[in-house]
Amino acid sequence: MAILVFTEIADGAIKKSSLEAIYYGAQVAEKLGTSVTALAIGKADSSELAIAGNYGASKVLHANDAKLETPNSMAYAKVLVEAANASGAKVIITAKSSLADAVTARAAGTLKAAVVGNVVELPDLSNGFKVKRSIFTGKAFADVNVTSDIKVLAIKKNVVSPVESGNAASVEAFTPALAENLFTAKVTETVKATGTVSLPEADLVVSGGRGMKGPEHWQPLLDLADALEAATACSKPVSDLDWRPHHEHVGQTGVKVSPNLYIACGISGAIQHLAGVNSSKVIVVINKDADAPFFKAADYGIVGDVFEVLPKLTKAVKELK
């Protein structure tokens, strides 16, 4: 009943969400009396990967084939399946992300595994294998009994609060054979925002809606995000109007976020938008309309002009730091 955690690397280090997944895996392993192996694919120093031990992994399998440098879900899934077979894993855990979804899906196809997405709690192992997952984009939860031999759990951000152990994991090179037919797709161009905080990973998010009045008025929001080192996001109308790039769109049909703090500026709070942010720990709403429905879902609210409020907040954040 070993546990394998699919671990993502960004800029040579394990992603924070993956460290959470490793910690979650360690909690499950403790219940099952087994250990956690992390599978890391891509370029990273062993010293960075050994940090997985601090979060409860005893071993890291490192697949560092040059062919794996560009994420490829088919090839990554092949590596994951081989790692599952090698470690005898019955439970595969990952932090939910678009890459992890694609990779675990393909692996599940081979392993005939149930995939449970958006898991929000540790499993209940008292009678079978039961997990609680968020459904309807956070509008409800389902307690699901998983009966497949191999199980894949994709956990939401902030489900566990890791306590670091100070241990280091052993790091082993992992080099499964990769057939040429895994690489039939040709990536001709990658456009990636650099130097900004990744939205799905972010602990703090500042988001703007139509109340921001136009793309040329975004600076005060960007200034606050900058001062907080927060990611920026937007509502669906804003991305539909091309005021902001599509990958910033948060909501039922966009990115789902669960940061510690979500600050909504000039967003009225349509039910579809709330669905994408309702698992945030703390929600702040700034809107000039006191009747905006978003206030009902908020922890803190300011009724006022965003263009007057935002600079005050930015100044206060700078003073705090």
Binding site: S98, A185, K192, T196, P200
Partner: peptide
Amino acid sequence: EIEGGKEIL
């Protein structure tokens, strides 16, 4: 769409 951007393939 990829995290923080897009990929043409």
